[in-house]
Design a protein around this nucleic acid. Structure first.
Length: 670
DNA sequence: GCCCCCGCCACGCGT
DNA sequence: TGGCGGGGGC
């Protein structure tokens, strides 16, 4: 039986014991929040007899959802299975799938990632003859997204992009596709407009928990509110100091809204930190104290003061990477640490490259999370596009992606003709291709080679639909055979013939993808059983190695991706002006300094025992060396908490001979 | 239609 | 660093 009094401290168990009614739990960094939540759910199921399927836990990242599921399974085993633990987007996906009939989507709808989304916007603009050479795509995406998620008022009829926006959405619907914002907007609309669905959902999800509440966007809060309004069993857990996603629409004013919408709420603060040493916590507290406009709280720990924070000044990013790699080696040796005890955190993905190279050449196993996703690689996207078209032939964006990849003589001119054909027959592009393929007199419109290419393409898609649908054929087997039929490997070899390394890399990616599919289809516990479901799932996932977390590897990631995680030793690389706080962030709005500071705070509070920061003297940016200054945030940490390592001395410290001598001395004394 | 080369741009965080 | 769109030769 779960005994929360025994397993948790007073505040935690107080928070964990309540199931009914609204609750606001302000949980500081490292205060055992995830532990509290998992025990809370276990307690609800085991001790209060609440049916697990009535509990909905919403998290911010896939990683957090996976970890929460894992931990609760540890506590109560299979009884955790009926729980819904997912990200907001995955939850939205689930609702769209469940109610696709009502919503007017076929069961095999596609999800468009931001790349596909932009392509679809471009296509829409072209069809409307909107000149888009000069448009700022960043702005358009932002505009469309904020309209859809209700951050901006609906476009007025006179708005220059109103027609474009509406047309884009009509096209998506015709493609039987949704974009990321639809995953939230469509379910919210459904819940708002369809009382039956709403009451079914309210009945099903009678207890709702929201983790990382400070990072929910307005539309996400609306979804939660409409679900919880009646039964009011809503527990939100958050920390305003760790709000780092405002650029994505996160609005920690949601905490204020929650207080207003649920005035009878109970409020509990978790302020005891179990993660970090006193020095690390002191540093974090001093930094965050520079922010105004925060809920008053002060993290404390009963633990030891621990080591000082160390600060090094490498000459450039190569020296920085070399220093980090060699320090990992020596610390691992000296303190009997595992690779997985280390994390290297950076502000931006681009900072990863030199670090990766150095780790690779030092044979240090590492895993990168976030960044340019595995699934964004061209070769993987192409393969996925084939499967998406097989599953959903109305998916025009993916159809256009593969119609001439590998090249089969269907260039821009031919595609344009097919489109005209589709237009005059009022059918989708793929239906048009099917019609052309079986048409007797197609040569009056299309040259023979083009007609034959279309016929061949349609034949491939149709025959693989059968194969992929056939329960006796494994998806991986069908895919391997498809790749052979397409001469896909030869295509890659030809495409990159002057770069053998790149070919190898791309082949490796394809192999990895096939393995991933094999792992999925042979997993007896898998929750997703259809290919369509699998494809939609991976569109929402950023990193491929979700189950390699337990492997012994150094963790390399952005600070954003590190939220919710903890490590014994944390390297903070590139702690420089213009990187953190980031130049562009401040250019956008000087007030963003507070969010940048929270980011730095999150970075510091990831560490249990040891923080090593580096600030380079110069750094290469787009081919030119620029000199770099230490981050102004460093001044916000009391000097006595830091050991400043002089750049001159550093050379001696990492002299290999001196290191060896030191090593010998250590060995002889022990 | 396809291939190849050139020059331009951007390089903040992610579901 | 690499991804792209445009232009010219085949």
């Amino acid at each position: 039986m779960i005994d929360i009094k025994k397993e948790l401290n007073d505040k935690q168990s107080e928070a964990a014991a309540i199931a009914d009614g609204p609750q606001l739990i302000i949980a500081g960094a490292g205060s055992g929040k995830t532990r509290m939540i998992t025990y809370k759910m276990a307690h609800m199921i085991e001790c209060l007899g609440i049916d697990a399927k009535n509990i909905l836990a919403l998290t911010f990242t896939n990683k957090a959802a996976a970890e929460m599921k894992d931990r609760i399974r540890h506590l109560i085993g299979d009884k955790a299975k009926p729980l819904t633990v997912s990200t907001f987007h995955a939850f939205g996906l689930q609702l769209i799938r469940r109610y696709h009939d009502i919503l007017g989507y076929s069961a095999r709808f596609s999800i468009y990632d931001p790349d596909d989304t932009q392509t679809a916007m471009k296509e829409a603009a072209e069809e409307l003859h909107i000149p888009c050479e000069t448009v700022n795509w960043f702005e358009i995406r932002e505009l469309f997204s904020s309209v859809k998620t209700g951050r901006t008022a609906p476009l007025s009829d006179s708005h220059p992009y109103k027609e474009w926006y509406d047309f884009y959405n009509r096209r998506l619907k015709a493609f039987n596709a949704v974009d990321f914002d639809d995953l939230l907007a469509v379910p919210l609309k459904l819940l708002t407009e369809n009382e039956e669905v709403l009451s079914a959902c309210r009945h099903r999800y009678r207890y709702i928990l929201v983790d990382e509440f400070q990072d929910t966007s307005t539309i996400q809060y609306r979804i939660v509110r409409i679900l919880a309004e009646e039964h009011r069993n809503l527990c939100v857990v958050g920390d305003d100091d760790q709000s780092i996603y405002s650029w994505r629409g996160a609005d920690y004013q949601n905490i204020v809204s929650f207080e207003k919408d649920f005035p009878e709420r109970k409020e509990i603060k978790l302020e005891q930190n179990y993660r970090s040493t006193k020095n690390i916590l002191d540093a974090a507290n001093h930094v965050i104290a520079h922010n105004h406009n925060r809920k008053d709280k002060k993290l404390w720990t009963g633990g030891e003061s621990g080591r000082h924070i160390e600060l090094f000044y490498p000459a450039d990013e190569t020296a920085e990477a070399a220093f980090i790699a060699s320090t990992i080696h020596s610390l691992r040796f000296d303190h009997h640490l595992k690779y997985r005890d280390f994390a290297i955190l950076v502000r931006t993905n681009t900072l990863c490259t030199p670090l990766e190279e150095e780790l690779l050449s030092n044979n240090i196993p590492y895993s990168v999370s976030g960044g340019t996703s595995f699934f964004q690689r061209k070769e993987i996207k192409d393969i996925i596009a084939y499967m998406k078209v097989v599953v959903n032939p109305d998916d025009e964006i993916n159809l256009l992606r593969i119609i001439n990849t590998p090249r089969r003589g269907l260039g821009v001119k031919s595609v344009e003709k097919v489109r005209q054909f589709a237009g005059s027959h009022h059918c989708s592009l793929y239906t048009a291709m099917c019609k052309i393929a079986v048409s007797q007199d197609r040569e009056t419109v299309f040259p023979k080679v083009v007609g034959d290419a279309i016929e061949d393409f349609v034949r491939i898609i149709e025959s693989y639909r059968e194969k992929f649908d056939d329960p006796k054929t494994k998806v991986s087997a069908a895919l391997s055979s498809l790749l052979e039929e397409l001469f896909y490997y030869a295509f890659i070899m030809n495409e990159y013939k002057n770069n053998e390394k790149l070919i190898k890399f791309k082949f490796g990616n394809v192999t990895k993808f096939l393995e991933m599919i094999r792992r999925w289809e042979s997993d007896p516990e898998r929750e997703i059983t259809t290919l369509s479901g699998f494809l939609n799932r991976i569109t929402l996932i950023t990193d491929s190695n979700t189950d390699s977390d337990k492997e012994d590897k150094v963790n390399l990631m952005t600070i954003h991706a590190s939220k919710g995680l903890e490590f014994n030793v944390v390297f903070l690389a590139g702690i420089e002006e213009e990187i953190i706080p980031h130049k562009r962030s401040l250019e956008e709005n000087p007030e963003n300094i507070e969010e940048e500071r929270r980011l730095f705070y999150v970075a510091i509070t990831r560490a249990r025992r040891h923080i090593i920061m580096t600030s380079c003297a110069k750094r290469k940016r787009s081919h030119v060396w620029i000199s770099a200054q230490p981050s102004p945030f460093l001044k916000e940490i009391p000097e006595e908490l830091i050991v400043y390592h002089d750049p001159q001395k550093k050379a001696e410290e990492f002299d290999p001979m001196a290191l060896l001598a030191n090593l010998k001395k250590t060995l002889s004394t022990s």
